[in-house]
């Protein structure tokens, strides 16, 4: 009931409010909701802050992290301390998340029945697990997120995205534009160009969307000698 009250309060619109409430009722610093397909992030529904966006972006770039695992395994994924967990789990993701200011990260599957939509990601700027109440609230919020996304999609036209959802969804469009450009530059398929972009971002320790905007703005071109 408290959650329902919170969702109704405040000025934030739909998805943004969802993420704010998710962070609030789970005692987290920030939260985000991502849609995933085929084991990879496909779109971001909402994030509460810069760090949450970076956590999503890092998982998008690297293809690893709590949301990717929560979605892939269909289970809650907890990492109460990214620092002491050492390098065993999500090597690249961990260093970026810690660098951005996250200390504990959690991924909750967003699904209805057997249908996996994506994941709710939660982070805290200090180490420690969720207590029982916070965990229960996180499960509820993941469920609310699934229902909210599908309810918004229910009004969509054929082949389209629901109007309310369309405003909120972020599909990393520039990354795909850049992949199209690189595919022409190198005469390779778009999928391979996407891999090259991600590899470049990884090697230069940058975010894939930053690399992509360099390509789109024509500050960076991929030559066959690269």
């Amino acid at each position: 009931m408290r959650i329902l009250g919170l969702l109704g309060d405040g000025d934030g619109r739909g998805a943004a409010r969802l993420c704010q409430v998710a962070a609030q009722v789970t005692g987290m610093t920030g939260a985000g909701v991502m849609l995933l397909a085929g084991g990879r992030p496909q779109a971001s529904v909402c994030t509460t802050d810069e760090v949450s966006s970076l956590i999503e972006e890092a998982q998008y770039t690297l293809g690893e992290g709590p949301c990717v695992d929560a979605h892939r395994l269909g289970e809650v994924v907890s990492e109460p301390d990214l620092v002491t967990a050492g390098a065993s789990r999500w090597v690249s993701f961990s260093s970026r998340a810690v660098g951005a200011g996250a200390r504990a990260v959690f991924g909750y599957p967003v699904r209805i029945g057997a249908g996996q939509l994506g994941a709710l990601n939660l982070y805290r700027d200090r180490p420690g697990p969720l207590d029982d109440d916070e965990h229960a609230n996180a499960l509820v919020m993941a469920d609310v997120a699934a229902r909210a996304v599908l309810a918004a999609q229910a009004g969509a036209g054929l082949g389209g995205i629901g109007i309310d959802l369309e405003e909120d969804l972020f599909v990393w469009g520039a990354v795909h534009q850049a992949a199209g450009m690189v595919s022409v530059q190198l005469d390779i398929p778009v999928v391979d160009a996407l891999v090259r972009l991600r590899a470049h971002a990884f090697l230069t320790d940058r975010l894939v969307s930053d690399v992509a905007s360099d390509v789109v703005e024509r500050r960076l071109a991929f030559g066959s000698d690269e």
Binding site: L35, Q42, A156, V171, H176, G180, M181
Partner: peptide, 21 residues
């Protein structure tokens, strides 16, 4: 349906990149 719609959104961005280049 949502996943397919997102995918076609992504493909449109990729095609724009190719035409642009």
């Amino acid at each position: 349906q949502l996943s397919a719609a997102l995918n076609s959104r992504i493909v449109i961005e990729q095609a724009k990149g190719k035409i642009s280049q």
